[in-house]
Design a protein around this nucleic acid. Structure first.
Lengths: 221, 221
DNA sequence: AAAAAAAATTAGTCTCGTCTAAAAAAAGTC
DNA sequence: GACTTTTTTTAGACGAGACTAATTTTTTTT
C-alpha cells in the first residue's frame, strides 16, 4: 500500500471536489483558491501528481483525476466524514465546529482504524452536514444542494441536515419525534389542503405540518 | 496559543522520555537512536528548540527541557495515551497494535478535542500499557517499570498491564474476575503458606493463587 | 599525560512544498 | 484580426528537516 503526503492528499481531495460537473478538467486557479496557495504552487504539485499517475494533465488544459487518484481522494473524504460523525455523535461537537479538526484527522493512515471507526459509529451513511459517506470500496453518490422538506413531493427521499428555526422549542419537538440530523426519510403523502406531509423513516410514519416542513433543511437522495 | 510542528513535538517528547533520572541532560546520540535519525539532525533541531526557549542547551553538554518545553511534551504524551485508550476500549484494538496509530493521533491540534475525548473515555488514569495519563494541567507521576504481581507485598499498590500466560483459559479466568488491563488494586493479605494473595480492587476483595500472581504483569503505583 | 575511541558539531547537499517575479499562452474585446 | 486582460507556466529562491562527510571536543584507555 503506497502512502501519500498530507499535501498530496489535500490536492487530490480538492481536485475531486471541484470536479463535480467539470468533465473538461479543473482549473489551476480554482485549486489555488480552495487551498489558499498560489497558482504556481498548484502547477508544481500537478506535475508531481501527474508523474505518479494520479491525475491526467495537459499544459494549459485542466486536470482530472485518474481512477487511482480518485480512489485516494474518496478514501480521504470517507475518513473526513467518518471523523465528523465521531466528533458530533460521540464528543458532542456542534456540527459547525468539526471541519477544522476533521481536516487533520482525515490524514491519519491506518486502514484498520478507518474500518473500525466505521463499525463503532454504526456504519453511518451520512455525515453531520448530510453529505454521504463513501463505503470502504469507494462507492457513494454526492447528493443535491440543501433545500427544504417542504420542497419535496410524494415519493421523494431526503436526509435531514439542519433547521431554519433553531429555537429550543422546535429542536425539542424534533427530538421528541426522533427527527435527528442524518435521519433518512421518504415522503409518502402530501395533503394539498393544509400542505401537511406524511413522511416515513425508521419504519415509522409521522405527519408534519407545513410550519414544520418549511423549517427543516434537507438534501434530496 | 503557539503551535509546533510534528517534528518539534516528537523531539520534545523524546527528550522528555529520556530525561527520567538524567538531571545532567539528555545526550544527542540517545535522541537520534530513539527517533531513528542521525546525530547531526538532532543537533540542528536542538538549536532550533533552544532559540524558541523550549530546551536548555550548552554545546557538548546535554539538553534538558525548559518548563515550557516540558509542558508541550506532557501535552503530547497526554494525547498519545488518551488515544491509546480510545483505540483499545472503543475500537477493540489489541494493546500492542495501538502505538503506531497513536503516534499520528497525538499531533492533532485541538484543546477541545483532547478534553472532550478525555471525558468521553471516562477520564481514565492509565493507558492500556499501564502508564499514567497526565491531567489537562500537566500533572502526573511516571511509574515504575513492569514487574509481577507476585513481587508485591502487603500494602503495595499496582495496576495490571499484561500477562505472561496468554492462553485462552487464563485470559478467560481474568475476565471472569474482572481483572482487566488497567485495573488498579492493592495487596491486602499475603499467605506465606501457599504464596496466595488477597487483593482489593473496585471495592471487592479477591484471592489469587501463586500460579495466578506470577502470570500477571503489573506496575507499582 | 598521550594516544585512541566515541560523541557531538559544522559544513554542505537534498527533497518537499511553498513563494515572487517574469514570461508565455489562452480568452475576451473592440 | 489586433489589443488587452486573465490564466497558467517557468525560473529562481527559501525554510523545514533530513542526510553524508569532515572536523572538533570529550571521554576512555593505557
Amino acid at each position: 500500500m503506497k502512502s501519500y503526503s498530507f499535501a498530496e492528499e489535500n490536492y487530490l481531495k480538492s481536485i475531486h471536489s471541484l470536479s463535480f460537473g467539470q468533465p473538461e478538467g479543473v482549473s489551476t486557479n480554482s485549486i489555488a483558491r480552495l487551498l489558499n496557495t498560489k497558482a504556481s504552487s498548484v502547477t508544481a504539485m500537478i506535475g508531481k501528481l501527474h508523474t505518479k499517475e494520479l491525475v491526467s494533465y495537459e499544459k494549459y488544459k485542466g486536470v482530472t483525476l485518474t481512477p487511482e487518484g480518485e480512489k485516494i481522494a474518496i478514501g480521504v473524504l470517507r475518513k473526513h466524514r467518518l471523523w465528523e460523525v465521531f466528533l458530533v455523535d460521540k464528543l458532542d461537537f456542534k456540527w459547525d465546529e468539526v471541519h477544522e479538526v476533521a481536516e487533520q484527522l482525515e490524514h491519519i493512515r491506518s486502514v484498520q482504524l478507518t474500518d473500525r471507526l466505521d463499525k463503532f459509529l454504526g456504519e453511518p451513511k451520512f455525515d453531520p452536514h448530510g453529505d454521504p459517506i463513501p463505503s470502504s470500496d469507494g462507492v457513494y453518490r454526492e447528493n443535491q444542494p440543501t433545500c427544504l422538506l417542504s420542497d419535496l413531493n410524494v415519493g421523494d427521499q431526503g436526509v435531514v441536515v439542519g433547521v431554519l428555526d433553531s429555537s429550543k422549542e422546535f429542536l425539542r419537538f424534533l427530538s421528541d419525534k426522533d427527527l435527528l440530523l442524518g435521519t433518512q426519510f421518504s415522503v409518502v403523502k402530501l395533503f394539498e389542503y393544509d400542505e401537511s406531509r406524511e413522511i416515513k423513516f425508521d419504519d415509522r410514519t409521522e405527519s408534519l405540518s407545513q410550519r414544520v416542513s418549511t423549517n427543516i433543511k434537507i438534501k434530496r437522495l
